[in-house]
């Protein structure tokens, strides 16, 4: 596969790879991609995809707002605050 395809993929994954990383990771990614291709011999024509491991029917909560009681703890985890707002670095 073209090296460019992995560059596009890295862009989509919001990863900035150094030259060293590109060299190492692309080689390993290609190795894994070839492994993935070994599934091509599996006969799965009439099978539905399994999207989840749950063996019992899923259930959902009531669609109602429950305020989180400990907002301050979440704010404390931020890198920088301005009053009760997350402060993110300046960008041009």
């Amino acid at each position: 596969m073209e090296q460019d395809e992995w560059a596009v993929t890295a862009e989509l994954a919001a990863l900035k790879l150094s030259e060293g990383e590109k060299k190492r990771l692309v080689k390993q990614a290609e190795q894994m991609r070839k492994l993935y291709l070994s599934m091509s011999s599996a006969v799965v024509d009439n099978l539905e995809p399994t999207t989840h491991a749950s063996v019992v029917k899923n259930r959902v909560r009531k669609d109602e707002v429950k305020p989180f009681k400990d907002v301050d703890t979440l704010l404390d985890a931020s890198n920088e605050l301005d009053d009760r707002f997350f402060l993110i670095p300046n960008v041009l």
Partner: peptide, 29 residues
């Protein structure tokens, strides 16, 4: 980084059926 890269790749438009959906069908098998 490697796993994110691979995961993003198998979900990309054009590759998803060949890799991700195929893997899910194999999971069923």
């Amino acid at each position: 980084k490697l796993r994110i890269l691979l995961g993003t790749y198998v979900l990309r438009s054009g590759f998803k059926d060949q890799y991700y959906i195929k893997a899910q069908r194999v999971r069923t098998l």
